[in-house]
Simulated assay, not measured.
Amino acid sequence: MALIPATILTGFLGAGKTTLLNRILHEPHGLRIAVIENEFGQENIDNEILVQESGEHIVEMNNGCICCTVRGDLILALTDLARKRNAGELQFDRVVIETTGLANPGPVAQTFFVDEEVGTHYLLDAIVTVVDARHGMQQLDEHEEARRQAGFADRLLLSKTDLVTDEEVAQLRRRLQRINPRAPIIAADFGRVPLAEVLDLRGFNLNDKLEIDPAFLQEAGHEHDHEHDHEHAHGHAQDSDCHGCDDPSHHHAHHLDDIAAFVFKSSRPFDSARLDEFLGGLIQVYGPRMLRYKGVLLMEGADRKVIFQGVHQIMGTDIGAPWTDADERGSKMVFIGKNLPRETFITGLEQCLV
C-alpha cells in the first residue's frame, strides 16, 4: 500500500497558518485531508475557526508541550489514523500537521524517522513554513524558534506582504535566503497560494536536514537537548500544567518565562461597543507584546459567532458560523504574549460583558 504523504505546517505565532489551512480545506481539490493540530496553551480555538462542515477528520492534541509529549501523542495520533484508514473507518489521502507557533519543527519531523510504525504508513512530504512579512524580521531577531522554523522549511510562504513595502519584502526574502537557501519563497497573502505549492512537494530531503542538525536522528539527543528544547514550550500561564512531562529535570530547564498564554471564557455576551473600545486600548498599550490572540465571541443580539484574531497591533474580526441549539454559547479568547498583565486583561474583558 502506498505511503500516506504528511505535511508539517509551521510558522511563528500569528503568521497565518490557520488561514492557510482553512483555505486548503475548502479548495475544490477533491482531496481528503486529515488534520492534526497542536496549540500553545490550554485552549484550542482553531477547531472553532476551521469550519466544521468541511468533513475532514480533525485530531486535537492540546497539551502545550511539544518536546515532552507531542511526539508521543503524534505517534499515537498518526498510528490511530492509519489503523482507522486500513479498517475502512476513515477515508483520507494525506495528513497535515499544524504545529504551535512556538514549535521547533525538528522533533515533529523526527517522528517520521524514529518510529517504525509511523515509517511504515507515512512519508514526510515537506515542512512548509509561513512567515509574517510585517513582523518576520523582528521575530527572526528575537526568537530562535522563528529561525529554526525558517531553517527547516522546504517551502517558505510569505504572508501579509500587502502590509509592507516592496523593499521590506525584498529585505526579508534576502534574509530568509541566507537562513535557508534551499527553500523556494512564495507570497501567500490571506492563504492564497496554489495547492501545488503546499502539498505533494516531495521536498523533505533528510540529508539536507542532517546538515542543519547533525543530531537529528539520534534518539538520545532529544533528552540531551532537553533544556534547549523546552525554551519554546513552557511559557504557560501559572495555572497551566504541562501534562505528561515525567522528567524531573524538566522543571529546572530554561523556559521562555516572558511568553505566556492565558484564556478568557464567559457564557455572557459581550457589549460590542465596550469591547471594541477596550480592545483598541489594549492594542495601543500592549500591542508590541501581544504575539498572538484569537477567539470565538458571543455578541449581544448576534445569531452568528464572531471570530476574532490578531498579532501585535493588527487585529481583525469575521463573521463565523451560526449559533445552533447544540452549541454551548459563550466566548473563548486566548492571548499569547510577553509579560502581559493577565489580571488587567481579564478584569477589563469582564467589564465589557452585558
Rank of each mutant, 00 (worst) to 15 (best):
Ile66Asn: 05
Arg174Met: 12
Asn104Val: 06
Tyr293Val: 05
Glu197Phe: 01
Pro341Thr: 07
Ala15Arg: 00
His255Cys: 09
Ile49Ala: 06
Met137Ile: 15
Ala87Asp: 09
Arg23Val: 04
Thr100Asn: 03
Gly287Val: 05
Lys332Phe: 09
Ala109Gln: 05
His232Pro: 07
Thr317Lys: 10
Ala82Gln: 01
Met137Pro: 12
Gly310His: 02
Val59Leu: 09
Glu219Phe: 12
Ser266Phe: 12
Cys242Lys: 00
Thr100Ser: 05
Lys84Leu: 10
Asp115Thr: 08
Gln139His: 11
Met333Thr: 09
Met1Ala: 12
Leu76Asp: 15
Val35Glu: 01
Cys67Leu: 04
Asp189Tyr: 01
Ala220Glu: 14
Thr79Asp: 07
Glu168Lys: 07
His243Ser: 11
Gly320Asn: 05
Asn207Cys: 12
Ile97Lys: 00
Glu167Val: 11
Asn47His: 14
Ser54Lys: 10
Glu43Thr: 15
Asp225Cys: 10
Leu13Asp: 02
Ala326Thr: 15
Gln309Asp: 03
Arg202Asn: 14
Asp229Tyr: 15
Asp318Val: 11
Glu343Leu: 14
Cys67Gln: 02
Glu89Lys: 07
Glu223Gly: 13
Asp132Val: 05
Gln313Ser: 13
Gln309His: 05
Asp229Thr: 11
Asp189Cys: 02
Val169Cys: 04
Val128Asn: 06
Val118Thr: 05
Asp132Leu: 07
Thr111Gln: 06
Arg94Ser: 07
His143Gly: 10
Glu53Ala: 12
His26Ala: 08
Leu256His: 15
Leu163Gly: 02
Glu223Phe: 13
